[in-house]
Design a protein around this nucleic acid. Structure first.
Lengths: 222, 222
DNA sequence: TATCGGATTATGGATTTCCGTAAAATACTG
DNA sequence: CAGTATTTTACGGAAATCCATAATCCGATA
């Protein structure tokens, strides 16, 4: 079982529950941070002191408040920690159930477990701890397990997302093309953008561009 | 202080924290429900037994799962409870920070306190309990307090919302007009809908309709 | 009933988006 | 290098939306 754990979680309620769970596993050496920045600093410090953490339990969404932060989301924190300390085990612990985001966590940041906050999340957290401490097996809450099997959104690339984001931000297609040209983004012709939008509308079964933006917002893609 | 409390909250973590807080106030007679339906039944039963609750602490968003429910959100639960038992005190306890929703809770359902889940929510919960048990004063977490002062969205009516919802659902303006005509919704001409959209875009400072839908989605209006 | 004001509806032209076709550029293959 | 395939770009007409103006309806009031 894990010896030294760090929790990144802004809500007291979840912190309390996680700590209680760790106690149940007789893990007493843990710390928590309410901001991603703090968590990252602690992890780096621990490495320097040659006493690295062997598990990170991190929330994904952190509330913004008065404090200015460098790392604003758990996704970023996890990514940076994975680079800094590749062998650390990571549990994402979040209410997030958007497939795009979870998928990218497993594929890009290579998290070891995803525990969905919900009616029985503590149970899941215990399972995750048991499984990933004993092996390199992954764990994912069953409510969202299916999304890992989903045939990929691999057809949707970075440029598509950019277009969608700009659209949802009130930018017209003409303006987007201008921006793309000024920033040397590769397909930047009127018809290329139009074609991509047509493809996206087809893919997401959207009736029109408004619908498309609405759908992709709901799915957490933008 | 309150004698008999019911908590409607689907997350174990929050239930635990709230119950601990009640214990701190020496409130021992409380129950909790993970589904709105259950909470409502308990409240009704308590009235019939002549032992009504004097406080409801309710979350707003409840996760959907396999179980079929009649009351799907805290907003609905609160509304129904307020009708059933007008004198009960109600604390909304939620992560929700969309002004439209909070405002309507105070104005329509006349909740007594709104506690925002966040880094210091337990502190706020204690304040709310103290204040509303002793008087008819309202409490609202300071992070969202400002929105009650906001000049109203009173310019936006039911038809506006309908239009926005249909748009975000992929319906074209022409189709919306058709639907309005078939359902005898009062302004149902091309230009009336266009005029309303122009007004909304002006109000929300949206560049175009896509932007408008995106903004109103973010604000929780649709 | 006459008239005023506000809201709704009608109309038409400018702009933007939509969508199909075709040319041009680029990549890949033998 | 020729030939094929894929991607990007160009063009143009159809459709939808945007926007300003004008006509019409409808309730309130004296």
């Amino acid at each position: 079982m894990f010896k030294k754990v760090i929790i990144a979680e802004d809500f007291e309620e979840f912190n309390l529950a996680v700590q209680q769970t760790l106690n149940d596993f007789n893990i007493v050496n843990f710390q928590h941070a309410k901001y991603c920045d703090d968590a990252f600093l602690k992890i780096r410090k621990a490495i320097q002191d040659n006493e690295p953490y062997d598990l990170l339990i991190s929330d994904l969404s952190f509330k913004k408040d008065h404090r200015e932060v460098k790392i604003g989301s758990g996704d970023e924190l996890i990514q940076k920690v994975r680079e800094l300390q590749p062998e650390i085990k990571i549990i994402a612990y979040s209410i997030e159930d958007k497939s795009a985001r979870i998928k990218s966590l497993f594929e890009d940041a290579e998290i070891n477990a995803f525990v969905l906050k919900g009616r029985n999340s503590i149970e899941d957290l215990k399972k995750a701890l048991t499984i990933i401490s004993a092996s390199d097996q992954k764990f994912i809450s069953h409510e969202v397990a299916s999304i890992l099997q989903e045939k990929g959104n691999y057809e949707i690339d970075d440029v598509d997302i950019k277009i969608l984001k700009y659209l949802s931000d009130g930018t017209s297609q003409d303006e987007i093309i201008e921006i793309f040209k000024n920033n040397d983004i590769k397909p930047n012709s009127k018809s290329a953008v139009e074609k991509r939008l047509a493809k996206l509308k087809d893919f997401f079964k959207a009736n029109n561009t408004i619908h498309l933006v609405s759908i992709t917002k709901d799915m957490g893609i933008i």
